[in-house]
Nucleic acid binder design. Structure first.
Lengths: 228, 228, 228, 228
DNA sequence: AATGAATGAGTATTCATTCAT
DNA sequence: AATGAATGAATACTCATTCAT
């Protein structure tokens, strides 16, 4: 642990309640009718993201965010209900595209598709490593965010699962694999490596990693290239 | 001097500047000279673990731990310097055995070994899920703990990498795999699934998962059973 | 994120290792941008001084000071980093003028000058007795403050020493006095009496004391009035 | 002030009561029937004095004293009611002899007597500087100790005052001096210099200082040597 | 007598959030 | 909309003193 203890200043909490931490519901603020308002709001979002990525959610103080945005302390609450809200908004605007399979059309060679998906996943992870790290932190004490994070993983796995079944039915891959487990395992493999590379800071050659992941994946499911 | 003595509340004193990152420095506590003392210390450790697992590190208050242990507030500091210290001690006493390959002797069939290792990993993860979740949380803002955690992962991967090279040299598995990447990827695959099962709470059949992971792993590296 | 936001209570964070002895470092507080802010800051200073004088530094709690100032608990830290800081600021604003020789022009009769200096010293001491008592307390466990206090004394003695040499050269006083020792002794004599009168609370007639001190001083150094 | 604030752990206090802090009254402990008991008691006294002189009263913890004495934590209270009590006992055993005029018999030459008294005072101060510093600290927040300290000074002054009157009546010194003020002033002069030398740590040559103080004193009162 | 474990009063400090201009 | 001052809940930690063996 190391450093001398000092209170961590902020985050959300429900004393003694270990239950769901859902939807902020309530009032939305500062919708931004004015152009100036909209600008300030955006400044705040950018500042918040920068601060979060720099020091993490727990150590980020609203005051820091305001300083970063160059606005006064109190104005924050003109635009956001709480620190949590900014965070959520940032998350919403960032998260979604780990899943997309880019660069390989629907009908393409399965190996190609897998390679493309792996590459895309790693690229996206790399691009968003900063905020992903923060999301990981927050998901550790906030059920909402944990939910969202699991959800994202689940969707990813579902997509893989779906395709796995398809390939199995077409006899392209091993029949004795459980599509759901395999999907989660292989998705987890890629996610784990991405985490090691971009969150934990371990060194891997990007392209080589894509190749190896693809090879492992293809072997694992026993995919035979459909290429002639 | 005065009727009822009472402490003078405040003044300036040099904080025991405590540069070191690991050793909490200063006076050592809870020497545990007495059986009673040792008992209390253990109670405190148990209580702390229970509380950490229940509410996480962040939400755990020293007061909660003391209440759980049934001792007075101040006694905590007879044994530990800080909440961090108890945590570290718990971590040290728990972490180490994800790595062991149990149940399959050194010379056993490679597939058997992999299966045994996977089973052991999942079992250990399941057994320690509570504290592992907390470790994950803390590693999110504490570099020492992060370090330790990465270390553990790294060692695991090293072991796999070593064996992978061995198998490659013996021609038992694909030659074109990069042992390091493969080791991290496959290790990550198992770890990720363990996380999904025992930390994120997704449902998977334990035995089936062991089988599937083993199958995926074996396929991925192209291992041919050495059985006749 | 959660229904009602509430702070996450604790975790580890690097204490702003603050080696410097003087500047409290870290974020500067209470910039006093607003008139209102400046007012509050002043209120706080006044309150702090009052509390310090009433109960001493050791027994003064930040809460007491805030209560005295009629502001909320936390606001204190908008303006000052710590109890120590307020104290230092008060000291800085008060200390300096024990030294001045008021009322007797540079070229005046030496005896007149001594009398004026003595009177001024006692007056200043009397005026600031409250805070001087506190300074004495703090200098007892705080090296900086001790330093400052000694410094003040030293400067006073230096001034006397300087003049003593001058008078010796001009043959106005005994030649066999050691200017440095004499200066410290005579300065100490006055300071000591001031302390007895205004800190220890012993009763002495003010004017008579000035006269007697002057007489003792003049005799001690063998000063012959330059008056015709 | 400098160091980061941290609570000063101990001393006596009466919340909100600025009144007298008198007599501990109550029960005396550990009178020491046994030889062993008496030994332990003395060890404790010695240890306490050492610790007090090393870190001051405020920073001295009962635990420190016990450690220094090599006895167990709780045994302290077998012998003393409180930290204050040990302190008082130490003070009582040390304080008294600043006053004595050693080395010059009653009928000796007045100048000799003054010289001898000055020398004795400085010597005693030097010898007991360690504990005197602590007494000074404690007198800052403890009325009893303050009282005692003032008392000592007062007695010293009384002695001087008495002698001064005597000399005045015998026509040996100036008639226009106020014996009480002069006594306090001159006594304070010596005390102040002693303080500067042995508490504040300023450098003065011992013998020279005695000479100069004597000279200043003799001059101040206009004493004519009775030597032929 | 000695030991050392247990107790608990006492307080500084942070920072999200609200509020008066 | 913006500003920045004010609020106050929340909690770790120390150490004198007591108590059970």
């Amino acid at each position: 642990m190391a450093e001398r203890a000092a209170r961590i200043p902020n985050a959300t909490r429900k004393r003694q309640t270990n239950g769901a931490d859902l939807a902020p519901a309530g009032k939305r603020r500062g919708t931004g009718r004015t152009a100036r308002g909209r600008q300030t709001r955006q400044d705040l979002l950018d500042a918040a993201q920068a601060v979060f990525e720099r020091v993490g959610f727990l150590h980020a103080r609203v005051a820091d965010i305001c300083a970063e945005a160059g606005i006064s302390h109190g104005s924050f609450y003109t635009y956001f209900v709480s620190k949590e809200e900014v965070f959520n908004e940032i998350v919403d605007s960032v998260e979604f595209d780990l899943l997309k399979v880019e660069g390989a059309p629907e009908g393409a060679d399965p190996v190609e598709r897998i390679r493309a998906a792996n590459r895309h996943y790693l690229e996206a992870y790399r691009e968003h490593a900063g905020i992903l790290r923060v999301i990981q932190q927050v998901s550790t004490f906030d059920n909402d965010v944990r939910q969202t994070r699991v959800q994202r993983q689940t969707e990813f796995a579902h997509a893989i699962e779906h395709r796995t079944r398809d390939y199995q039915e077409r006899g392209l891959i091993h029949a004795d694999l459980d599509p759901r487990i395999a999907a989660n395992a292989l998705g987890g493999m890629v996610a784990s490596l991405a985490d090691q590379m971009f969150i934990q800071g371990q060194e891997f050659d990007f392209d080589e990693t894509v190749e190896q992941l693809t090879m492992l994946w293809v072997n694992a499911v026993g995919l035979r290239s459909t290429a002639p």
